[in-house]
Design a protein around this nucleic acid. Structure first.
Lengths: 155, 155
DNA sequence: TTTATAATTTAGTTTGGACTAAAAAAGTAA
DNA sequence: TTACTTTTTTAGTCCAAACTAAATTATAAA
């Protein structure tokens, strides 16, 4: 059973609101997603169909166990992809957020895990850990490698 | 002027067919994209509207200058993202292709460039260049770092 | 309680991008 | 040419996901 990217986004927002307030209101979802209230209603009906949320008209919404699980998976992917883009690749906050928001829907956990591992792997080099940001940014901008590792590590 | 992801895909395929044959036929586009012929016709009409292709009914299709330019941008992003996923991250060929096919539509040239730079930057460490694939794959699988660099580079 | 306001849903519309089925144009063999 | 086959287009349908406008339910103040 696979839901659309759109429904995944709704689920994600419901999870975040639930974490903050213990439940989610239709209006808050609409505001957070910058979408009309009526659009939310339709989405909620769909999510309830899939048994991902508990939804009674005019009542606050909560996640089912299955819904929470899926939401967590999406959030996991989102966070780690965003962190990779921002901290390693040096992409600006908002851009990283935007891109992660799209990638989270078609990247599997396995690929997300690889992004995580890559970050760790790179940072575990002592030369990198120290000054990754500046080092890579310089290299990206003008191709200069300011690391000392090249000359000092023996081949 | 920004076209949809769907139209970008059509443009990309037309560019590839043009490179091979000098022009593109509606049927070949349909086959390559695994889409019905009628869907192609509609897409072509749209691309012609935007002046990205030269399109006369029942005739072979060619790219305009503007169309070629946009197609090249997409292909650039596609190739480099795919290479990053495959060669650095170790994602399987088909999966990398699939993911690149989606990312190419919402990643800017700047971010694509960062992926390129990252690959170069990592590989320019002599320890990595040699055996990146095995080294990272092992790290991804069981967290073991088989590089010798950690101990041998001075802090 | 009655009434006004706010929250939420219903009903119906729009749009993009796919589809099917049928028509039309082009290409080919008798 | 004529007739058959292949290629391509037209016309109309479907679906998801947004929208607007109007209706309904809930909440709060007089």
């Amino acid at each position: 059973m696979d839901i659309s990217a759109s429904l995944e986004n709704y689920l994600e927002v419901i999870a975040k609101l639930s974490d903050e307030d213990g439940y989610a209101l239709s209006n808050d979802i609409a505001d957070k997603m910058e979408v009309k209230r009526s659009s939310v209603t339709v989405a909620l009906r769909n999510l309830a169909e899939y048994d991902l949320i508990v939804y009674k008209k005019y009542k606050p919404i909560t996640l089912t166990e299955k819904g929470r699980e899926i939401a967590n998976q999406i959030i996991y992917k989102h966070q780690n992809i965003k962190a990779f883009l921002k901290d390693l690749l040096g992409v600006k906050e908002e851009k990283a957020e935007e891109i992660a928001c799209k990638m989270e829907h078609f990247i599997g956990k396995d690929v997300a895990d690889r992004f995580v591992a890559l970050s760790k792997y790179i940072k575990s080099c002592p030369k990198n850990e120290q000054m990754w940001r500046e080092g890579f940014e310089t290299f990206y901008r003008d191709g200069t490698d300011i690391r000392t590792c090249n000359s000092k590590c023996e081949k």
